[in-house]
Design a protein around this nucleic acid. Sequence first.
DNA 1: TTGAAAGCGGTACCAC
DNA 2: GTGGTACCGCTTTCAA
Lengths: 328, 328
Amino acid sequence: MATISDVARLAEVSVATVSRYLNESGYVGAKSRESIQSAIKELNYVPSEVARSLSTKQSDIIGLIIPDIKNPFFPELARAVEDTAFEYGYTVILCNSDENANKEKHYLEKLTKKYVAGIILTSIIEQENHWQKVKLPIVALDRPINSNVPTVTTNNEKGAKIATDYLIACGATNLLCISGPDTFTSSQTRVDGFNLAATHKNINTYIIESPYDFEIAEKILYDYLKNNPAIDGIFACSDASAIGALKAAHRLGICIPEDLQIVGFDGIQVGNVVTPSLTTVAQNIYQLGQTAAKLLIKQIEGHKLTQESVCIDPELIIRETTRKERFK
Amino acid sequence: MATISDVARLAEVSVATVSRYLNESGYVGAKSRESIQSAIKELNYVPSEVARSLSTKQSDIIGLIIPDIKNPFFPELARAVEDTAFEYGYTVILCNSDENANKEKHYLEKLTKKYVAGIILTSIIEQENHWQKVKLPIVALDRPINSNVPTVTTNNEKGAKIATDYLIACGATNLLCISGPDTFTSSQTRVDGFNLAATHKNINTYIIESPYDFEIAEKILYDYLKNNPAIDGIFACSDASAIGALKAAHRLGICIPEDLQIVGFDGIQVGNVVTPSLTTVAQNIYQLGQTAAKLLIKQIEGHKLTQESVCIDPELIIRETTRKERFK
DNA sequence: TTGAAAGCGGTACCAC
DNA sequence: GTGGTACCGCTTTCAA
């Protein structure tokens, strides 16, 4: 593999000049420029990013730490981050933390060692603060970690409120909210939105907790719905639990949406494939990822952030698990 | 950030000794060892992987090039690769090629510049040969690129044969095979398996092509099934097209599995969520990724490969889009 | 406009 | 056992 000095030698100039040419920093005379160009071509020269990194203490690598790429929410997010990174000439390292503080910490350290340019973090660690040791640009995605860290999230409360309002408008009066694990602030915020919309009306509300896993949710909801047949509307804090509820209702012979209406949250693809297809509050996942990446790159490149944090509105997608709106 | 010479100075030894200690190469006396340890602790020293890479021309980064992480087949694959990489101390860079030769080439180059240790490639480029310029360890995943490159694939022919045999055993006699784009050898091989199982019996066979996209497949199959009501069994070369077929049949009022049985291929999660749930030939996706990563790491670490290529058997998962087996 | 040379933070050979 | 030191390939002063 040819090096910069090979190029310099062949072009009969100094490495400094070649470097200047490469980085478009400083002057390079026309003749030098030409001979450098042909030398590069002839030697098939490709600059070493590692050497450059060592010198500049910077790289074009972005670390993306997420809980689990298998979780249907994240592929699209990762894709958005990668697309944006690609557009700006960056590259992304994928890390699955499994909601595990140690793994998260491990990756944070590992990425630091690599001089990554910055990190996008969907952290489990809201209370802890490994990230504080990291002096790199960081953006928190989906889950805020600290008010000093720029954060990109969905407007969860608003989304939950819209969903609940819609259920009520469609005639549901006994509402169940399926919350997520209480360690997720996003889940708590969605529950807040649910309460905001459902209280002070002639509505009965119930809350039950379930992990964002459709098989577990199915079990939990099977038991719950069996014992609580009055429930006629469900707002689930995730599509996964919504689909679990759908399956459970199916097994119990409950008709959807006639006897029971369901609205999910997230907008993952599967919701469109189940029968009946799922009415849901869709997060703009791609935009979340894209925004996070852009915010990070802005920081990396030393621009001032005009907005520290971004909150993206979700959108209600009406499909088949809800009836027609009756009350406006 | 502390460097190796800071450590050496504080520990009152030379950098060479610290380096030896760090890499467990060569002798380090007990006293030196101790003072180095405490110096490292005190300075909170973390070795720079970049500097090390420059010196050794090696890194612990594995490049993973896939068409699109949003494609439901790949998250699990990526996860398996990442898990295995993690286990062996490697880190993975994720690249989405979009089945685009230029993007693939770009990434191949970019990864080379970074001195990545090796590359796992799900290539679109079966005929081209960008990868030939790359002198790094490579493993081809899912799609063979060349007989010299170690390859990990599913036994597609066998899987297709099992699926088709099963359809026939369940009483289907007018079989449609939904193939994939003919640029995928995997699809061709599955069609081969289908033909192998279906010809020479009192079976009528038909073949139609569709992309691995459930919405497009739905359109194509809607038209096809409308005009060919005799079809009573479908073997789809992907779960995506199987689900498209399912949706199309649903819209046409065709009962599944009574009037029409469907078997998919891939084993993606969605198949388990649709109604009726999809009988399918499941690839062992996790194992594919894991095997590829292990094969790559073996090469990287200079071990001889005992088996150049690996072919993993898929498994028929019987769910609700097929009837009970009637003929054995 | 250009080049010499001092880093960047390690590794590894060789002499002691 | 240990240390001096010449690289690895590139960036970046600073002087010419």
